[in-house]
Every structure is written in C-alpha cells, then in structure tokens.
C-alpha cells in the first residue's frame, strides 16, 4: 500500500494527530521524519496515501495544526 506523510511543526502536534486519526479509523503511525522531507529532528505521521484527503479534513476539523501532507 502506498504511504504518505503528515508533517508537523512539533512532535507534540504529531502525537495529538496520531490519537485523533487513529480514533477516526485511519492507520496513522508516528515515524521519524524522512530526511528527504525535512532536516528537522522529530516525527511525522505515516498514513495510507489514499487517506490523505480524509486525514487533512479530520485534522482541520479537530483544530490540530500540521505543516503539510505529502512526500
């Protein structure tokens, strides 16, 4: 299954997003940020690429801040 990444400004936001997305049935998993996406230390969420739009909508409606989805 093709995967994509949700990037955050902070690990704290990634942890919140993981909880919110998993509770809504999206297989989200905290992983280290791939180097090709960011030089920042910390984490992002790995999600199924097919769930990208749904994840974005859920995070926005839950007021969970994120940087971007992709990569």
């Amino acid at each position: 299954m093709s995967r994509t990444y949700v990037l955050f400004f902070s690990t704290n936001h990634a942890m919140w997003a993981e909880q919110v997305l998993v509770a809504r049935g999206i297989a989200a998993k905290v992983v280290a940020v791939p180097r090709h996406l960011s030089s920042d230390c910390g984490y992002c969420l790995e999600i199924p690429a097919t769930a990208a739009a749904a994840a974005a909508a859920i995070l926005r409606s839950s007021a969970v801040e994120f940087d971007r989805i992709g990569g």
Partner: peptide, 22 residues
C-alpha cells in the same frame, strides 16, 4: 528524550508526555 530523536523509544516518550497533556 521526547521529540529529540527519531527512534521508537523517543516516540514512546513523546506519547507519555502527550498522554499527560491530554
């Protein structure tokens, strides 16, 4: 150390902190 490394132990520490925050 939460948020200071990419390995799974640091992620778990981050989850513990988030759990307290929640």
């Amino acid at each position: 150390n939460p948020g200071r490394a990419g390995h799974f132990r640091a992620a778990e520490a981050g989850r513990l902190v988030f759990r307290a925050r929640r």
